[in-house]
Design a binder for these strands. Structure first.
Lengths: 190, 190
DNA sequence: ACCTGAACACCGTTCAAGT
DNA sequence: ACCTGAACACCGTTCAAGT
């Protein structure tokens, strides 16, 4: 009952930007499969009531959609003009993988919240599909293979025989695997 | 206050088997990214107090581990003897993908609960690694690619341009993609 | 327009108490 | 050994009430 009931005098409220920034921080701080972010914990961190968040985002799924739109915003942006299809696919996937790897808990949260899938991610898959159509007779097959691999390779699933919390492969390892896949997709006998 | 306080007279309690079976049912019924299963909902469905479950499973992560052990139990079982490496890898992955596809919500729940990863799944990855060592100079790379693809292809992520809840590709589609990958891994120029 | 408290229907898990 | 109710510290979201 510290704070008054109605609207505060000055701009003591939250911004949409502040919400998104703090939400991403909460997500990045946790290691619990996307469970680190909750509306209540987020409001708490912002020094605000949970309900005030609903004036800036639609709901929890909407919050995740907004987050993914900002995190993946640069994937398709300013791609060098006149690139060969092969190189453009490579560039997009390297950027996408880097974004997944930077915020793996966001990707896991989206996995757990089907309604959060939309926006930029759809544009990325569409762009990849278009490019792959000129490169292989099975564009949808390879688009799925490449995206699945970018996800799996960017997410912290314990899979190696070493430490249970082994970090995902770094960018260099991803590039190596990606080139492996792209050269398989490209010209090959049979 | 209907039921008496102490231990019931007869075997009105729950079995570990009943717990696992009902848990899998709850998971399969839901479409919410592995959120359909909770200790409380499970106890409710079994007509029992939430706390009674803790006498049969360690906790929520332990429940998921037990579930994955039963769901993936048959993946390595009774593999035909004298199979070529190539064929054995193919058989294991087809079975693994089928299990993921049968209970996608379990896989999503495990993704969201890192502590749930263990047991049979580790045996499967180890077996695959061993086989791939005789097939390629990059066994770990290809093991990850193949498992990531089995996951992605078995999970209901909205990714296609069609219906948002489009079903994952069926077994035939997976086999086609898998053969695509395996022939890329196999002998190829350069 | 924006924030509030109270409420509803949920969570996982601990703990002492029963038989 | 196994189940219980009560409790603690959480969830997302609705709703009427404030300014």
């Amino acid at each position: 009952m510290r704070r008054p009931r109605g609207r505060p005098a000055q701009g003591t409220g939250v911004t949409r930007d502040a919400i998104l920034t703090t939400a991403l921080t909460l997500l990045d701080e946790s290691e619990s499969g996307g469970k680190g972010l909750s509306m209540r914990a987020l409001a708490n961190r912002l020094g605000v009531t949970p309900m005030s968040l609903y004036h800036h985002v639609e709901d929890y799924a909407g919050l995740l959609r907004a987050l993914s739109d900002t995190v993946y915003a640069d994937v398709l942006k300013d791609i060098e003009a006149g690139l060969a299809c092969h190189e453009e696919v490579r560039e997009i996937l390297i950027r996408y993988h880097a974004a997944v790897r930077r915020h793996p808990q966001l990707t896991l949260a989206i996995f757990a919240t089907p309604a959060a899938f939309a926006g930029v991610t759809r544009e990325i898959t569409d762009r990849l599909t278009g490019l792959l159509q000129t490169m292989t007779t099975e564009p949808l097959l390879w688009r799925d293979i490449l995206i699945d691999h970018a996800h799996g390779s960017g997410l912290p699933v314990a899979r190696d025989d070493d430490a249970p919390a082994a970090p995902p492969p770094d960018d260099h390892d991803y590039r190596r695997a990606l080139d492996c896949l792209l050269s398989a997709l490209g010209p090959r006998r049979q």
